[in-house]
Deep mutational scan, measured.
Amino acid sequence: TGIVNVSSSLNVRSSASTSSKVIGSLSGNTKVTIVGEEGAFYKIEYKGSHGYVAAEYI
């Protein structure tokens, strides 16, 4: 489990890349469940599926 540490919002992406499609966003202080790690990204549970967020902001 981690907490989103941004002042505005954090993009949730379809894969572990900044060039991948943005599938949603999370606001600051949102609690997320981390299920894996790929490079600089965490794989998280997101809306019944999975998404990827930049690990530096969690």
Rank of each mutant, 00 (worst) to 15 (best):
T1W: 15
T1D: 08
T1G: 07
G2F: 09
G2E: 03
G2S: 06
G2I: 08
I3Q: 07
I3A: 06
I3P: 03
I3L: 10
I3C: 14
V4M: 04
V4E: 02
V4F: 04
V4Q: 04
N5M: 12
N5F: 08
N5S: 09
V6F: 08
V6P: 07
S7R: 10
S7F: 09
S7G: 11
S7M: 12
S7V: 11
S7P: 10
S8R: 10
S8W: 15
S8H: 15
S8L: 10
S8K: 11
S8C: 15
S9W: 13
S9P: 11
S9E: 11
S9Q: 11
S9I: 11
L10W: 03
L10G: 03
L10E: 03
L10H: 03
L10Y: 03
L10M: 06
L10F: 04
N11V: 15
N11L: 15
N11W: 14
N11F: 14
V12S: 00
V12E: 01
V12D: 02
V12P: 00
V12L: 03
V12Q: 00
R13A: 06
R13T: 13
R13Q: 14
R13P: 02
R13C: 13
R13L: 15
S14I: 13
S14K: 12
S14Y: 11
S14L: 13
S14D: 13
S14Q: 14
S14A: 15
S15Y: 08
S15G: 13
S15R: 09
S15H: 14
S15P: 02
S15D: 11
A16S: 07
A16N: 04
A16M: 04
A16E: 03
A16H: 04
S17Y: 06
S17G: 07
S17E: 08
S17F: 07
T18C: 15
T18H: 15
T18V: 12
T18R: 10
T18K: 12
S19G: 10
S19M: 10
S19N: 12
S19P: 06
S20H: 05
S20F: 07
S20D: 03
S20M: 03
S20N: 03
S20G: 14
K21R: 11
K21S: 12
K21T: 12
K21N: 11
V22E: 04
V22L: 07
V22W: 06
V22Q: 04
I23L: 09
I23R: 02
I23A: 02
I23Y: 02
G24T: 02
G24E: 02
G24R: 01
L26H: 02
L26P: 00
L26I: 12
L26M: 06
L26F: 04
L26E: 01
L26R: 00
L26N: 00
S27D: 12
S27R: 14
S27K: 14
S27E: 13
G28R: 12
G28A: 14
G28P: 15
G28I: 11
G28Q: 12
G28D: 08
N29G: 15
N29I: 05
N29Q: 10
N29L: 10
T30L: 06
T30Y: 06
K31P: 09
K31Y: 12
K31G: 06
K31S: 09
V32W: 02
V32Q: 00
V32G: 01
V32I: 08
V32A: 01
V32N: 00
T33V: 13
T33F: 10
T33A: 07
T33L: 09
T33G: 03
I34L: 05
I34M: 03
I34S: 00
I34A: 00
I34D: 00
I34W: 04
V35G: 02
V35Y: 07
V35C: 08
V35M: 09
V35S: 04
V35F: 06
G36P: 02
G36M: 06
G36D: 07
G36Q: 06
G36E: 07
G36N: 06
E37C: 15
E38Y: 10
E38D: 09
E38H: 08
E38L: 07
E38P: 01
E38Q: 08
E38K: 06
E38W: 07
E38T: 07
G39S: 05
G39I: 04
G39P: 02
G39Y: 05
G39D: 07
A40N: 12
A40F: 08
A40P: 10
F41D: 03
F41A: 02
F41T: 02
F41Q: 02
Y42F: 10
Y42C: 04
Y42G: 01
Y42W: 06
Y42P: 00
Y42M: 06
K43C: 09
K43H: 04
K43D: 01
K43M: 09
K43V: 09
I44W: 00
I44Y: 01
E45Q: 09
E45S: 07
E45G: 04
E45Y: 08
E45R: 08
E45H: 08
E45I: 14
Y46L: 03
Y46Q: 01
Y46E: 01
Y46M: 02
Y46H: 04
Y46D: 00
K47R: 10
G48M: 06
G48F: 05
G48Q: 07
G48I: 03
G48D: 09
G48N: 08
S49Y: 09
S49F: 10
S49R: 11
S49H: 10
H50V: 14
H50D: 05
H50R: 04
H50F: 15
H50M: 09
H50Y: 15
H50K: 05
H50L: 09
H50G: 04
H50I: 14
G51W: 03
G51R: 01
G51A: 10
G51I: 02
G51K: 02
Y52W: 12
Y52V: 02
Y52E: 01
Y52D: 00
V53K: 01
A54N: 10
A54T: 07
A54Q: 15
A54M: 14
A54K: 14
A54F: 14
A55E: 04
A55R: 15
A55V: 11
A55D: 02
E56C: 10
E56Q: 13
E56I: 13
E56T: 08
E56V: 11
E56M: 12
Y57D: 08
Y57G: 10
Y57C: 15
Y57M: 08
Y57Q: 07
Y57S: 09
I58L: 06
I58T: 02
I58Y: 03
I58W: 04
